[in-house]
Amino acid sequence: MFDISLAGAAMAGLLSFFTPCILPMVPFYLSYMAGLSMSELTTEGEIAPGAQRRLVTSAIMFALGVTTIFMLMGMGATALGQAFAQWKQVLAYAGAGLLFVFGLHFLGVIRIGILYREARMESSAEPTTVIGAYLMGLAFGFGWTPCVGPALTAILMMAAGMGSLAQGAGLLAVYGLAMTAPFVVAALFARPFLGWMARNRRHLPKVEKAMGAMLILFAVLIATGSVNVISNWLIQAFPGFMNMG
């Protein structure tokens, strides 16, 4: 059955990747994980088979590392939600208010200075190894970035209302996989992807505004308890959704 929570998590993950504070970093991550210089990665011709294989494998392990951290966060949010069930409505209003402010920030209505800062744990492992790439993903997953932080907050608020730890972990797994899947696609088609980035960089502010609108929508859904109402409406309006999932 179609689940608006899972769809929202997937959309938030994709938008997180295409925001101005993540997408521009992709070429450097690809170069770092493949063990290639930027000039080698962007010049014409084929990437050496060994480097291409190393790049794709590293991207997959990096994605799994990031998603692992998000799943643990989802389980923690669900556990906290269950522990403070008697304060559920108050926490929902507080969280919705925070998301609404984040949304206004991305729409450009207000500007919050702290959201322009980025803190990341660094891994000392060699990223061109499988374990190194996974540890790099774990380090990235722990980080707070201007774009992922607000979107992740929205999904964690939804996870807090889940009935089991598995559901909370599953919701954040969807978010993490949706955010990191483009890394794997970029690794598979590194040079075409980098060319696409160069041509479409000017559209990144539009993605930022889309993120703002989505956060405000999440705020309204959480504050009004309308997530299930929207889901039921979608199922009635589009019966094909019944076959999804």
Score class of each variant (00 low, 15 high):
F102S: 06
G81R: 05
C147V: 07
L14T: 14
G81I: 07
G103E: 03
G35T: 05
V56Y: 04
P24L: 10
P27N: 08
L104I: 11
H105Y: 01
V109M: 10
R54F: 00
L91K: 11
I114K: 01
R111G: 09
S37M: 06
Y134A: 12
V130P: 13
L30G: 08
G132W: 08
I22S: 14
T129S: 15
G113S: 12
A48C: 02
F100W: 13
L30P: 06
A51S: 10
F70H: 10
V90C: 06
I69A: 02
I69K: 06
S123P: 04
I69C: 05
G35K: 05
F62H: 07
W144F: 14
T68E: 07
L99W: 05
V26M: 11
V109I: 14
V148A: 03
Y29H: 05
T128F: 04
M73E: 08
V148C: 01
Y29L: 15
T67R: 04
T19N: 13
A79S: 03
V56K: 04
Q52A: 08
F84H: 15
A77S: 01
G74E: 10
T57W: 03
L14A: 13
M11F: 06
M73F: 14
Y134H: 11
S5F: 04
G103C: 04
L72W: 00
T19D: 12
G45W: 10
G95L: 06
G8F: 06
L23H: 11
P127W: 08
L80K: 12
I112Y: 00
L14E: 06
T68A: 13
L104N: 10
L104H: 00
R54C: 00
F102T: 02
M25A: 09
M71C: 12
G141N: 07
Q89H: 15
L15W: 02
L23Y: 08
L30Y: 07
W144Y: 03
A85M: 09
G13M: 07
V26W: 04
I47S: 09
S39K: 06
G74K: 06
G74L: 09
I47R: 08
P24N: 10
E118V: 12
A79W: 05
A59S: 09
V101A: 15
S31K: 04
L6Q: 05
A94T: 08
Q86I: 15
T128D: 06
V101L: 15
Y32P: 01
W87D: 10
Y116Q: 14
P146Y: 09
A125C: 09
A59V: 04
I131T: 15
S5N: 09
L55W: 05
A79Q: 00
L15Y: 01
T57E: 07
P127S: 13
S37A: 02
Q89V: 13
G65Q: 02
S37W: 02
W144H: 01
S31T: 05
G108C: 14
